[in-house]
Protein backbone atom coordinates (compact mmCIF):
# COMPACT_ATOMS: atom_id res chain seq x y z
CA UNK A 1 0.00 0.00 0.00
CA UNK A 2 1.39 3.26 -1.00
CA UNK A 3 1.82 5.68 1.83
CA UNK A 4 2.66 9.26 1.42
CA UNK A 5 3.77 11.49 4.18
CA UNK A 6 4.10 15.19 3.96
CA UNK A 7 6.38 17.07 6.20
CA UNK A 8 5.39 20.66 6.06
CA UNK A 9 7.04 23.65 7.60
CA UNK A 10 5.36 26.93 8.08
CA UNK A 11 7.28 30.12 7.46
CA UNK A 12 7.91 32.30 9.35
CA UNK A 13 6.28 30.38 12.18
CA UNK A 14 8.26 27.45 13.52
CA UNK A 15 5.14 25.50 14.22
CA UNK A 16 4.46 22.62 11.85
CA UNK A 17 1.99 19.84 11.13
CA UNK A 18 3.09 16.48 9.80
CA UNK A 19 0.00 14.80 8.39
CA UNK A 20 0.08 11.22 7.26
CA UNK A 21 -2.43 9.93 4.70
CA UNK A 22 -2.96 6.25 3.96
CA UNK A 23 -5.54 4.26 2.02
CA UNK A 24 -6.40 0.63 2.51
CA UNK A 25 -8.74 -1.36 0.32
CA UNK A 26 -11.00 -4.22 1.30
CA UNK A 27 -13.53 -6.44 -0.34
CA UNK A 28 -17.02 -5.87 1.00
CA UNK A 29 -19.04 -9.05 1.20
CA UNK A 30 -22.36 -10.12 2.58
CA UNK A 31 -22.00 -13.06 4.93
CA UNK A 32 -24.83 -15.36 5.86
CA UNK A 33 -25.25 -16.00 9.56
CA UNK A 34 -26.60 -19.12 11.14
CA UNK A 35 -29.78 -17.34 12.17
CA UNK A 36 -30.62 -16.70 8.54
CA UNK A 37 -29.67 -13.06 8.66
CA UNK A 38 -26.71 -11.56 6.91
CA UNK A 39 -24.18 -8.91 7.66
CA UNK A 40 -21.75 -6.88 5.65
CA UNK A 41 -18.07 -7.53 6.31
CA UNK A 42 -14.92 -5.81 5.10
CA UNK A 43 -12.36 -8.49 4.40
CA UNK A 44 -9.06 -8.90 2.65
CA UNK A 45 -9.64 -9.46 -1.03
CA UNK A 46 -8.42 -12.69 -2.56
CA UNK A 47 -9.61 -11.47 -5.88
CA UNK A 48 -11.85 -8.81 -7.34
CA UNK A 49 -14.16 -9.44 -10.25
CA UNK A 50 -16.91 -7.40 -11.87
CA UNK A 51 -19.79 -6.95 -9.50
CA UNK A 52 -17.63 -7.14 -6.41
CA UNK A 53 -17.76 -4.33 -3.93
CA UNK A 54 -14.55 -2.68 -2.83
CA UNK A 55 -14.30 -0.56 0.28
CA UNK A 56 -11.69 2.14 0.75
CA UNK A 57 -10.72 3.20 4.24
CA UNK A 58 -8.71 6.41 4.18
CA UNK A 59 -6.84 7.21 7.36
CA UNK A 60 -5.07 10.40 8.37
CA UNK A 61 -3.03 11.35 11.39
CA UNK A 62 -1.46 14.58 12.55
CA UNK A 63 2.04 13.71 13.64
CA UNK A 64 2.99 17.35 14.01
CA UNK A 65 2.94 19.70 16.93
CA UNK A 66 0.30 22.07 15.60
CA UNK A 67 -3.33 21.34 14.84
CA UNK A 68 -4.33 20.89 11.22
CA UNK A 69 -7.59 22.52 10.26
CA UNK A 70 -9.77 23.04 7.20
CA UNK A 71 -9.08 19.42 6.31
CA UNK A 72 -10.79 18.36 3.10
CA UNK A 73 -10.49 14.92 1.54
CA UNK A 74 -11.49 14.69 -2.07
CA UNK A 75 -11.83 11.29 -3.68
CA UNK A 76 -12.79 10.77 -7.31
CA UNK A 77 -14.78 7.59 -7.79
CA UNK A 78 -12.36 5.35 -9.71
CA UNK A 79 -12.99 4.56 -13.35
CA UNK A 80 -14.83 1.28 -13.97
CA UNK A 81 -16.56 1.51 -10.60
CA UNK A 82 -19.80 2.91 -9.27
CA UNK A 83 -20.30 4.58 -5.92
CA UNK A 84 -22.47 2.44 -3.62
CA UNK A 85 -25.30 4.51 -2.21
CA UNK A 86 -25.00 5.65 1.42
CA UNK A 87 -21.64 3.98 1.81
CA UNK A 88 -19.58 7.10 2.63
CA UNK A 89 -18.79 7.48 6.33
CA UNK A 90 -16.65 9.77 8.38
CA UNK A 91 -16.93 10.97 11.98
CA UNK A 92 -17.02 14.73 12.38
CA UNK A 93 -17.17 15.28 8.66
CA UNK A 94 -19.52 16.85 6.21
CA UNK A 95 -19.93 14.49 3.29
CA UNK A 96 -20.74 15.88 -0.13
CA UNK A 97 -20.83 14.51 -3.61
CA UNK A 98 -20.21 15.72 -7.13
CA UNK A 99 -21.81 14.65 -10.38
CA UNK A 100 -19.75 16.93 -12.60
CA UNK A 101 -16.16 15.82 -12.17
CA UNK A 102 -15.64 17.68 -8.93
CA UNK A 103 -16.61 21.12 -10.15
CA UNK A 104 -19.53 21.37 -7.74
CA UNK A 105 -20.39 19.48 -4.57
CA UNK A 106 -23.61 19.09 -2.65
CA UNK A 107 -25.89 16.86 -0.73
CA UNK A 108 -27.67 14.07 -2.63
CA UNK A 109 -30.92 16.00 -2.82
CA UNK A 110 -29.06 18.95 -4.32
CA UNK A 111 -27.55 17.02 -7.19
CA UNK A 112 -29.03 16.82 -10.64
CA UNK A 113 -27.98 15.43 -13.97
CA UNK A 114 -29.17 16.08 -17.45
CA UNK A 115 -30.55 13.17 -19.37
CA UNK A 116 -32.11 13.41 -22.80
CA UNK A 117 -32.21 17.15 -22.35
CA UNK A 118 -34.08 16.90 -19.07
CA UNK A 119 -32.83 17.81 -15.63
CA UNK A 120 -33.24 14.82 -13.36
CA UNK A 121 -32.28 14.04 -9.75
CA UNK A 122 -28.93 12.29 -9.62
CA UNK A 123 -28.54 8.92 -8.00
CA UNK A 124 -25.53 7.34 -6.40
CA UNK A 125 -24.34 5.78 -9.64
CA UNK A 126 -23.95 9.26 -11.08
CA UNK A 127 -21.49 10.41 -8.45
CA UNK A 128 -18.04 11.25 -9.74
CA UNK A 129 -16.46 12.43 -6.49
CA UNK A 130 -16.89 12.08 -2.75
CA UNK A 131 -15.69 14.86 -0.48
CA UNK A 132 -15.27 14.87 3.26
CA UNK A 133 -14.79 18.17 5.08
CA UNK A 134 -13.73 17.83 8.70
CA UNK A 135 -15.87 19.94 10.97
CA UNK A 136 -13.11 20.45 13.49
CA UNK A 137 -9.36 20.73 13.53
CA UNK A 138 -7.17 17.68 13.83
CA UNK A 139 -5.12 18.17 16.96
CA UNK A 140 -1.54 17.13 17.28
CA UNK A 141 -1.34 13.35 17.61
CA UNK A 142 -4.97 12.95 16.62
CA UNK A 143 -6.10 10.65 13.83
CA UNK A 144 -9.26 9.92 11.92
CA UNK A 145 -10.60 8.01 8.97
CA UNK A 146 -13.28 8.10 6.33
CA UNK A 147 -14.51 5.37 4.08
CA UNK A 148 -16.72 4.56 1.12
CA UNK A 149 -17.61 1.64 -1.10
CA UNK A 150 -17.63 1.20 -4.86
CA UNK A 151 -18.84 -1.62 -7.01
CA UNK A 152 -16.70 -2.81 -9.88
CA UNK A 153 -18.55 -2.46 -13.17
Amino acid sequence: MKKLTALLFLVPSLSFAQVELTTKMFEVIEVQKDNGKSRIEWVNADNIIPGDKVGYRISFKNNGTEPADNIVLNNPVPENTLYVADSARGANTKIEYSVNAGNDFGQPNELFIEKDGKKMPANAKDYTHVRWTLTKALASGESGSVQYVVQVK
Binding site: L4, L8, L21, K24, M25, I58, D69, I71, N75, P78
Partner: peptide
Protein backbone atom coordinates in the same frame (compact mmCIF):
# COMPACT_ATOMS: atom_id res chain seq x y z
CA UNK B 1 -6.17 -1.68 -13.14
CA UNK B 2 -8.47 0.34 -10.93
CA UNK B 3 -6.87 3.14 -8.98
CA UNK B 4 -8.37 5.05 -6.10
CA UNK B 5 -6.64 8.42 -5.69
CA UNK B 6 -7.53 10.61 -2.73
CA UNK B 7 -6.28 14.09 -1.92
CA UNK B 8 -6.13 15.86 1.42
CA UNK B 9 -5.98 19.62 1.72
CA UNK B 10 -5.46 21.34 5.04
CA UNK B 11 -4.20 24.45 6.74
CA UNK B 12 -2.01 25.12 9.69
CA UNK B 13 -2.48 28.38 11.51
CA UNK B 14 -4.41 29.71 8.54
CA UNK B 15 -1.73 28.82 6.00
CA UNK B 16 -2.56 26.47 3.18
CA UNK B 17 -0.32 23.44 3.11
CA UNK B 18 0.85 21.33 0.23
CA UNK B 19 -1.85 18.92 -0.88
CA UNK B 20 -1.34 15.32 0.14
CA UNK B 21 -2.22 12.49 -2.20
CA UNK B 22 -2.46 8.77 -1.80
CA UNK B 23 -3.53 6.13 -4.23
CA UNK B 24 -4.04 2.40 -4.28
Amino acid sequence: DITNAVTLDFKVSGATQVQLTDDT
